[in-house]
Design a protein around this nucleic acid. Structure first.
Length: 562
RNA sequence: GGCCACGUGGCGGAGUGGUGACGCAGCGCUCUGCAAAAGCGCGCACCCCGGUUCAAUUCCGGGCGUGGCCUCCA
């Protein structure tokens, strides 16, 4: 089966054929970095992360280039810089704002299980490309200089009558409609109401660069041109996929397309234009004035939304419930369900022999993803597998692989390897230790592992000649107990939940008490067992007893009481 | 005003020209020292009115309703 994607430009699902299968190229409009990203910003990041993962699967991880820009030149950034760092020169203040915001953004989307794009270019590092594009447009007669501005003329584009697309084709509207519907005041230097700014003079104190097209005074770019420039620089004149939120269709993408196609005399910028639907909060448009504005950070770390914090995996799963092109209603109820389902799935896959599993989607998962990323339908595959996972270890393993593939769980083997590498380095263990050496180091290793929150196979699952340490260090991890967390999977437990553990009891003590209670239960010492349950309950932990489906061995998991 | 989506069981939400995904909630049962999980089973929906068709929730037309874009916005 072939990948089919819905293209906004042609308004149909089309088979996807890359221009170059050796280098599949995708551009997604990233954040303007002036404040914490809100949950609406998270949607395209997650949607196109899934597409990125799928493309890597189809064409190979080294054959996909995913560019997501960082817009660091913008009026809002300037305002924020002046407000937050009044003592600093503006340019320095701006750098502070953009650096801090970019770091926050990365932390947030990491927590949502998103891979980093291949390239994250910054607008300010592409001013030269912007100037080049602008000069090409002026030379081609698509743009003109007026009062130190450079303006793009959609009329000129349509008059050119060549291979160029019609201006308005993407947004499906005509120039006449736009003129009729124009609500903006038309600046006197514009020849037509629909002309838009490519370059504008900088006001005193604003960041500025040498202007193109013979303009003497310094200036700064208009909105839209930065994406044309960065896409060109990193993906070429034409590329495969251009994505973003549906609200970007007009004017942002329409104008990008116009600029790029006119600059290169091309009929296409991206072959496929993809747009995710809008996000609403409890049925209303999210806006600061309605007071329902919520950031990713607030969801992860505060109780602002629904009176509690949420794990990154649950936020991601909640996004998956609605097809990416549909509007999504962001509700507390939906997050409660997602959190519950994630807990169930994690319990099911807690004893997967991760070293033996290839992270590949099942056929059904692949099939539904190939059909325009039908992630919501893929959930029925996950639930099907979960239903039989209890009895069928291969279904359990496939469930695990699917969860990792979709980014709902981190790859436990990778985490274990990272942890092992750190430990090895830390305690100065030889690179390929023999069994005797490992025995000598064993207490140290186990202590370090505790600190990294990696839980090892129980002794029943290791042979006499294989120490727990060698199991980790040779990468042959059989089990990772997901009801703990690791240092490396920040989207498993949320920050406040982790802090709760640290502040109340500490992970080491918690694990010890659970082990102690399991022993007590084995002795039928139910008084002792209940004492431990009560002790932990008083600290806010709910214990749940179960059985390992394979071995019948009793297990206990915990969660934080809500 | 122009353009565009959407309307599925108590709730969320896929999908389809002809035996109705899936999840949550609910009900019944099983298992379990306790508690909670977990397992099994049940519900029989597609806004209204026309049309096309042997057959429409699915296609077409109209209506009603909700939302979005046209202005910074993912």
């Amino acid at each position: 089966m072939q990948l089919r994607l819905y293209d906004t430009l042609t308004r149909e699902k089309r088979p996807f054929t890359p221009l170059d299968p050796e280098n599949v190229r995708m551009y997604v409009c990233g954040p303007t970095v002036y404040d914490f990203a809100h949950i609406g910003n998270a949607r395209p990041v997650i949607v196109f992360d899934v597409l990125f993962r799928l493309l890597r699967h189809l064409y190979g991880a080294d054959h996909v280039t995913y560019v997501r820009n960082i817009t660091d030149v913008d009026d809002k950034i300037n305002e924020r810089a002046a407000r937050d760092f009044p003592g600093l020169p503006l340019n320095q203040a701006i750098r502070k704002v953009t650096e801090v915001t970019e770091k926050q953004f990365h932390e947030d989307v990491d927590a949502l299980g998103c891979l980093r794009p291949t390239i994250e270019p910054r607008a300010t590092e592409h001013i030269a490309e912007m100037r080049t594009l602008i000069e090409k447009l002026v030379a081609g007669g698509f743009a003109y200089v007026a009062e130190d501005h450079v303006l793009f003329s959609p009329q000129a584009m349509n008059a050119a009558n060549s291979v160029l697309p019609r201006y308005g084709a993407l947004a499906n509207r005509s120039l006449d409609e736009m003129i009729a519907g124009a609500r903006v005041d038309v600046a006197p230097y514009k020849r037509d109401a629909t002309d838009f700014v490519l370059w504008k003079p900088a006001k005193p104190g604003e960041p500025s660069w040498p202007s193109p097209s013979g303009i003497k005074s310094e200036g700064r770019p208009g909105w839209h041109i930065e994406c044309s420039a960065m896409a060109w620089k990193h993906l070429g004149e034409q590329f495969d996929i251009h994505g973003g939120g549906i609200d970007l269709v007009f004017p942002h993408h329409e104008n990008e397309l116009a600029q790029s196609c006119c600059a290169f005399h091309s009929g296409r910028m991206a072959n496929t234009w993809m747009h995710n639907g809008f996000l609403q909060v409890e049925g209303d448009k999210m806006s600061k004035s309605l007071g329902n504005f919520v950031t990713i950070r607030e969801l992860l770390q505060t109780d602002k939304f629904g009176g509690r914090n949420w794990s990154g995996a649950a936020l991601r799963l909640a996004m998956f419930k609605t097809h990416y092109r549909q509007p999504i209603d962001w509700t507390v109820q939906s997050l409660i369900e997602a959190e519950q389902v994630m807990a169930h799935w994690k319990m099911l896959v807690s004893r997967v022999p991760i070293a033996q599993i290839k992270i590949l989607p099942t056929q059904k998962l692949e099939r539904v993803l190939l059909d325009d990323l039908n992630v919501s339908e893929s959930l029925s595959e996950l639930h099907d597998l979960a239903r039989i996972a209890q009895k069928d270890a291969s279904a359990r393993d496939r469930l695990y692989a699917n969860l990792v593939f979709l980014g709902l769980l981190p790859d436990q083997l990778e985490l274990a390897k990272q942890g092992a590498a750190e430990i090895q380095h830390e305690i100065k263990l030889p690179e390929h230790p023999d069994a005797t050496t490992l025995e000598v180091f064993r207490p140290k290793i186990e202590k370090s592992l505790e600190r990294f929150f990696l839980t090892l196979p129980s002794s029943a699952n290791t042979t006499a000649t294989t120490t727990t340490a060698s199991v980790i260090l040779t990468g042959e991890v059989r089990y990772v107990f997901l009801d703990n967390w690791t240092k490396y999977n920040p989207y498993y437990l949320s920050q406040p939940d982790r802090a709760h553990v640290e502040n109340t009891i500490g992970i080491e003590k918690l694990n010890n008490l659970i082990r102690e209670r399991l022993n007590a239960r084995a002795r039928k010492d139910f008084k002792g067992s209940d004492r431990i349950r009560d002790e932990l309950a008083a600290k806010g932990f709910v214990l749940k007893d179960g059985k390992d489906p394979a071995t019948g061995e009793p297990t206990t998991t915990w969660e934080i009481a809500r």
